[in-house]
Design a protein around this nucleic acid. Structure first.
Lengths: 225, 225
DNA sequence: CGCCATCTTGAGCAACCTCAAGTTGAGTGG
DNA sequence: CCACTCAACTTGAGGTTGCTCAAGATGGCG
């Protein structure tokens, strides 16, 4: 139910059940293994919705988040192409999912996961996927609970550089607000931290503020805490 | 790899493989399904240790945590009797585990998990267990990233009341420092928040400071954010 | 070219932390 | 049974970080 990059589960679905199911049904809009195209900020599901499907990102970025009653938001993860999310133990989604950019996902009917249970390697692959998501969540708890604003931003940039494998320049696909709500900061603090890192010569932020040039990855890594 | 209270996996082990393995080996000190007794603050495993075993608590409380290089600590979870923790996707433990109180755990050899893979219901049970842990982690990220000190304490007390099923009084099994490192606060702020809740008449803290009497659960729930 | 969402910057403030004393309860030994 | 000790906790004063509120800058897009 979180990010899983090396997603064997997804491959499994593609090669097997999904393509067959899609061929049988002859449709691409909804149902088993259906493709769903989302525009920026479109909602895929909300917290509390029945968890009928889980998803794999094929294009763009999905954010999953939780809200407090007064609107404060925590984005628990960004999901990139290949990542699987929305797998639930219970019958409801525990967070909401929206498109952080224009995005495309494939929806897998959750029921089929149960039916495919006889497949030996399959459930182990799902388990691995969820465990990787848990690992990510545990690292993020350390960040949220114990890192300073600058350290949070540094960690975030290093993580994004890995996931986007941008060698030295990365194109952030999400807004400052999304970054803030992921790192437990305000957009002002995100902005100020980026400015501070630039002042120190560790990064460079060109006029189109979505691009970040990593000038000194070693310094960033040191700032990780 | 986190707290799972309704642990079918543990039952499975007890009824099946574990007892047979223990009978065959005739020992209780280490190895498959062995019992391990820990005194307070004793370390069960450290971050980076090879993940040979995973564990189930039978007595006491185990804390799992991560450290930053300068010693800052984040306790990601407390594990109570019945909870399973230490299940890893990779070959290393991603956090350390110590006894928050005197505790007893049962160690299960991880290899046996792989061997038992043919068991249809088994891997699904492990998956559910890990997914419940992930749910807990996601709720905790919202707390760490977006709640105030008072809200964190209120959420913590409500959660502890559920898990210890203390009707209106709970006996906290962990120190203020452990609470602080779980909630992303300092011990002083934990103490002041408890005092503040007492001043408002929402809780009462008797002389033995480990006991908390919940006077107004509705108010606590409202403070959850 | 002009609009507008997004981002940055500034000033003041609040929440929480740090550092430093007190307080207290539980355990210990006489 | 009582004094003593010590870890754990509380309380206080002051500092720092990050937030709030407000205003400006800017680039993308029509």
């Amino acid at each position: 139910m979180q990010t899983v990059t090396n997603a064997p589960i997804a491959r499994h679905f593609e090669a097997g059940m999904l393509s067959r199911a899609m061929a049988a049904q002859g449709r691409r809009s909804c149902g088993v293994g259906s493709v769903r195209v989302l525009e920026k900020d479109e909602e895929l599901f909300a917290e509390g919705d029945p968890a009928v499907f889980f998803y794999r990102v094929t294009e763009g970025v999905i954010r999953t988040s939780k809200l407090l009653s007064d609107g404060r938001r925590q984005i628990d993860a960004f999901h990139f192409p290949g990542d699987v999310f929305g797998v639930e133990a219970g019958d409801e989604h525990r967070f909401s999912a929206e498109a952080a950019t224009a995005a495309t996902v494939i929806a897998y009917r959750r029921r089929d996961l149960d039916e495919l249970h006889f497949d030996e390697t399959f459930s182990r692959e799902v388990l691995d996927a969820v465990m990787h998501a848990l690992e990510r969540a545990q690292r993020h708890m350390l960040l949220l609970g114990r890192k300073s604003a600058i350290e949070k931003i540094a960690t975030f940039l290093v993580d994004m550089a890995e996931r986007l494998d941008g060698d030295d320049a990365i194109e952030l696909p999400m807004s400052r607000l999304d970054i803030a709500d992921h790192l437990g900061l305000t957009i002002e603090t995100v902005s100020r931290s980026l400015t501070e890192l630039e002042r120190k010569g560790i990064i460079h932020v060109p006029a189109s503020r979505r691009t970040i040039v990593l000038r000194d990855k070693a310094a960033l890594a040191r700032l990780n805490g």
